[in-house]
Simulated scan of single mutants.
Amino acid sequence: MPGLDEVRGAAHGLRGRIHRTPMIESSALDELFGATVTLKAELFQKTGSFKVRGILHKLLRLTAEERERGVITVSAGNAAGALAWAARDAGLPATVVMARTAVPAKIEAARAYGARVELVDGDLVGAYEAIRDERKLTGVHPFDDLDVITGHGSLGLEVLEDRPDVDTVLVPVGGGGLISGVALAAKLLRPGIRVIGVEPETADVVSRSLEAGAPQRQPTARSVADGLAAPVCGTHNYAFIRDYVDEMVRVSDSAIVETTRLVMSRTKLALEPAAAAPLAALYEGKVVPRGLTASVVSGGNLDVSRILQA
């Protein structure tokens, strides 16, 4: 497993290439959630999500032969945009495999950054693997990759550098890439900090994996927080979460929707539902506040027509 030196090295390599996103406080949110909350605003990151951290770090570490073949990933949307942007920046051809039912704005974003988008029905992972092997492309897994995890660790470093008084970090969880990196950095810097992952009740493959004692699959995962509906728990991610995360909690889709609306109303931040999931855990009382709580606002690529419908 990578250590703190590797995370710091990743952060150094990303410096100047991506944004150092702000920590935002809101007295209205403190009153709403009955907690002292600070938001790590990754919705202001390049491509509108945290995903560029890990994916760009991965691309920077590819060999010349891997770069020449071109890169491919599979994604609900944000990883697709991140790979497309990072590959364009690096001068690499990129292919992304997405569900035909993915958020249209996320599909168009990947195309706008120059990626070849393959829309498929059914087994996304199977389609990704088949296209990768047939075209001899270099696979960039969106979460189950040590370089991707290490790149995401840069977010954890920034949280504790900017707010060393943070007691609890809340992180949205899909396949586990983001929380793996954040928890690694946070726990190695301050072992006593509390790291809590939050999943939708209907897309809880990581919680199921921890309960089963091994990575599980959940091909039927669905949620209004589309970015968290991962069909599998990554093998590497399972190990990091098992070793570094204090607790996993599940929240309802209805709480995610209501929290998204409340946060948008109180702060004017256009966060996507996946980014609201950690705050939904406070809203539903699934997490007991303790000291200063940092919540990772993971992205802002929301489908406005879906989340704001009456």
Rank of each mutant, 00 (worst) to 15 (best):
Gly48Ala: 09
Met23Val: 08
Val287Glu: 02
Val71Ile: 12
Arg69Cys: 07
Asp226Phe: 01
Val288Ser: 14
Arg261Leu: 13
Gly139Tyr: 07
Arg266Glu: 14
Asn237Glu: 07
Phe50Thr: 01
Ala110Thr: 04
Asp5Arg: 13
Arg266Ala: 10
Asp204Ile: 05
Leu56Cys: 10
Ala277Val: 00
Tyr113Gly: 01
Gly3Ala: 12
Leu302Ala: 13
Ala130Val: 09
Val171Phe: 02
Tyr244Glu: 06
Ala86Glu: 06
Leu32His: 11
Glu247Tyr: 06
Arg250Met: 03
Glu65His: 08
Leu262Met: 11
His57Met: 06
Leu83Trp: 11
Leu146Cys: 07
Pro231Met: 08
Ala225Pro: 00
Leu119Thr: 10
Leu137Cys: 02
Leu146Ala: 13
Ala214His: 15
Cys233Asn: 04
Asp5Ser: 14
Ala105His: 09
Ala80Val: 05
Val120Asn: 02
Ala64Tyr: 08
Arg116Ser: 14
Ile24Trp: 11
Gly291Cys: 05
Leu39Ala: 07
Pro219Gly: 05
Val166Tyr: 00
Gln218Ser: 12
Leu210Asp: 01
Pro104Arg: 12
Leu155Val: 09
Arg306Val: 13
Asp123Arg: 08
Glu42Pro: 05
Phe143Thr: 00
Tyr238Asp: 00
Leu83Thr: 09
Tyr113Ser: 03
Asp30Met: 12
Glu201Leu: 12
Ala105Leu: 14
Lys187Trp: 10
Gly300Cys: 09
Lys106Glu: 04
Gly139Val: 06
Gln216Cys: 08
Ala229Ile: 02
Val148Gln: 08
Glu68Met: 12
Leu178Lys: 00
Pro164Ile: 07
Ala212Gly: 04
Leu184Ser: 02
Glu247Pro: 03
Ala185Pro: 02
Ser154Tyr: 10
Leu43Tyr: 15
Arg250Phe: 06
Arg190Thr: 05
Val148Arg: 02
Gly234Ser: 06
Arg132Val: 02
Gly234Thr: 03
Gly151Ser: 10
Lys286Ser: 14
Asp30Lys: 09
Arg290Ile: 04
Leu228Ser: 02
Leu43Ala: 13
Arg306Pro: 01
Gly197Trp: 00
Tyr244Phe: 15
Ser209Tyr: 01
Val195Thr: 03
Ile131Tyr: 02
Leu188Ser: 09
Arg88Glu: 11
Gly126Glu: 03
Phe44Val: 10
Leu92Met: 07
Pro22Glu: 11
Arg88Asp: 13
Ala212Glu: 10
Gln45Asp: 10
Glu284His: 08
Ala86Lys: 11
Pro93Trp: 04
Ala10Tyr: 09
